[in-house]
């Protein structure tokens, strides 16, 4: 007799996943398992396949071959997953209306909206901007709104695609604080970055990818202290990988 656990999207497992568009191979045979716990940070140079990997794990695109499973199941709609894109799209509405939209899309009852929206705005530090048109926010504010929108569905997994790229240090810190708080609540964070400092600050695990392949996957402390591969050593040392 087995215990039936409630359906969970974790672990997320990639089995020999390939993804290409016509002749261009972007993901070239990746196998990977993401389990609950501290944030997993994807690092690697630009064009290494980080964004595509996130979209595969989110379920926005289908692998050309191989398969992705969520809690052992395939083709699971993204009801318990959320993603914040590198350039999130702000709906043409107020900040609060963006949150309300996400709450409605997550199927959360209307009577809870007001309270949940207040909490989410609070977490994202956007309470004072609730009535502003979302598209007039600064880059950092937009990232935080996108984060709050993602959290509206109370996800098990939160994907973030270079959330602090092109933000100033203050805005970066604001985002990282939210990410830490989210992770502390037990939400699995999977984020990409090419900022090694950020990876050191946030990561529990590191997945280092290059040219569509996983080069190294290890706990963060171990990865930064003793990179096993030559490519990883050079990347950590700040050399340019091409």
């Amino acid at each position: 007799m087995t215990m039936r656990a409630p359906d969970s999207d974790l672990p997320i497992v990639l089995e020999d996943v390939r993804y290409g568009v016509r002749d261009l191979i972007i993901i070239d045979g990746m196998s990977l398992m993401l389990t609950p716990g501290a944030p997993t940070v994807l690092i690697g140079p630009n064009g290494s396949g980080k964004t595509t990997l996130l979209r595969l794990m989110m379920g926005l695109i289908e692998p050309t071959s191989g398969r992705v499973t969520w809690g052992g199941r395939t083709h699971v709609p993204p009801a318990r997953r959320a993603i914040v894109f590198q350039r999130p799209v702000m709906l043409r509405r107020s900040v609060a209306a963006n949150i309300h939209y996400a709450l409605a899309a997550a199927g959360i009852g209307r009577h809870q909206h007001a309270e949940r929206a207040r909490d989410l705005l609070e977490q994202a530090g956007l309470s004072a901007l609730a009535e502003r048109p979302a598209r007039r926010l600064s880059g950092g504010e937009q990232q935080r709104l996108a984060l709050a929108r993602g959290l509206a569905r109370d996800p098990q997994v939160l994907f973030l695609d270079e959330p602090t790229a092109s933000l100033d240090p203050a805005a970066t810190k604001a985002i990282e604080d939210v990410v830490r708080a989210v992770s502390a609540r037990g939400i699995k964070v999977v984020m990409s970055t090419h900022d090694l400092g950020e990876a050191r600050r946030l990561a529990g695990d590191i997945v280092f990818i290059h040219r569509g392949r996983v080069i190294e996957s290890a706990p963060a402390a171990e990865f930064f202290a003793h990179p096993k591969t030559d490519d990883a050593r050079r990347f950590v040392a700040g050399e340019l990988l091409v």
Binding site: R55, M58, L60, P77, P78, A79, A82, I83, F85, P88, V89, L91, Y101, A102, A105, A106, R149, R153
Partner: peptide
């Protein structure tokens, strides 16, 4: 073109 991925990520159905 602009919204498609964001709406897909929010699991919004065709009518929505």
């Amino acid at each position: 073109t602009e919204y498609r991925e964001e709406l897909a990520a929010m699991n919004v159905g065709p009518i929505g």
